[in-house]
């Protein structure tokens, strides 16, 4: 038995909206699964179902062999949940928040305190431990929330968009923390809207859209399939644009896009970059810009579904 999560045919409707239209998932023990999808794809709904907060309309799922519907209490003993919005008690201090969870999990007072201090330390909250959580910054709240979901040393951790809204530095720090937890043997289900995040953290990626799985595989498989990178070149002299277009189209095997002097094309293989560089050097073409950047989620969707992500207009939902 090596799949911690096994889900089949999960369906969930909210009135007229079909949030999930039959989702299958499996997560191997000790790995990170990245659930990648745009706003409204159904990521949070999947997490809430697998965390026993919501019952699916149909389909079934087991966590560590326990059924999420009939054995929810057992499932709750295996999981830790860090929801999309930090769920800390703002009127308690950081320390109190963590002690509270520890006590609820049945730890004696001294153990709960010790565990809380340990977690505050590993999440760089030692100095803020005695302050009410309402005085925390967004990043600190996230870290406290994450710490709270780890008090009981869960085997399986759900992270629903753990870095959305964090500044780039806090984001990198969060990645480091997550990597640390995984190296400790924890299994993680992570949702994200960012391809680079899934790429950086996940062993496997499942792409969902409109409540359906539209692609899955390792980050490399997915990037190969979707040409997850874009090569961009900007020649110094505009007369060289057609030459550059010809060279790039030959190497990337697609018709490049031209925007003023900027020529770009999606590439599956980063090896194209040095080849292009050689070609340009041989032809004596000088460039002001030459580089690979990772594709945005939008570009991935474009290549998977042939359509860009639809903009949602449902800001009024609760």
């Amino acid at each position: 038995m090596s799949d911690v999560i096994q889900a089949e045919g999960l369906v969930k409707r909210f009135g007229e909206t079909t949030a999930l239209a039959g989702v299958d998932l499996s997560v191997r023990n000790g790995t990170v699964l990245g659930l990648l999808g745009p706003n409204g794809a159904g990521k949070t709904t999947i997490v809430r179902i697998l965390a026993t907060l919501l019952q699916p309309d149909s389909g079934r799922a087991t966590i560590g062999g326990y059924d999420i519907m009939t054995q929810a209490h057992q499932v709750r003993q295996l999981i830790g949940l860090t929801g999309q919005f930090a769920s800390v008690d703002e009127n308690l201090t950081g320390l109190e928040n963590l002690v509270f969870v520890g006590r609820l999990l049945g730890m004696p007072k001294a153990d709960a305190k010790a565990r809380a201090r340990e977690l505050l330390g590993s999440f760089k909250l030692d100095d803020a431990g005695e302050r009410a959580a309402k005085t925390y910054s967004g990043g600190m709240r996230r870290r406290l929330d994450l710490a709270a979901s780890l008090v009981g040393r869960p085997r399986l951790l759900y992270l629903d968009e753990p870095t959305t809204g964090l500044d780039p530095r806090a984001r990198m720090e969060a990645w480091e923390l997550i990597r640390g937890m995984v190296s400790g043997g924890m299994t993680v289900l992570l949702t994200t809207q960012y391809l680079d995040e899934a790429d950086a953290l996940a062993d496997d990626i499942v792409v969902i859209d409109h409540g359906r799985v539209i692609a899955m595989g390792t980050p490399d498989e997915l990037k190969a399939k979707t040409a997850a990178q874009t090569l961009a070149v900007r020649p110094v002299d505009p007369v060289h644009v057609p030459t550059v277009v010809a060279a790039l189209s030959e190497l990337a095997r697609v018709e490049p896009e031209v925007d003023g002097q900027l020529v770009s094309a999606p590439v599956a293989d980063p090896g194209v970059l040095p080849l292009l560089y050689q070609r340009l050097a041989q032809d004596g073409i000088e460039v002001t810009e030459l580089g690979l950047r990772s594709a945005s989620l939008n570009e991935v969707f474009l290549s998977l579904t042939g359509q860009p992500i639809e903009e949602e207009s449902d800001d009024d939902r609760q």
Binding site: L81, G83, F85, S87, V88, D89, V101
Partner: peptide
């Protein structure tokens, strides 16, 4: 604030 969700997941 989501605290209720945290409690329900325990």
């Amino acid at each position: 604030k989501g605290v209720f969700d945290r409690l329900r997941s325990l």
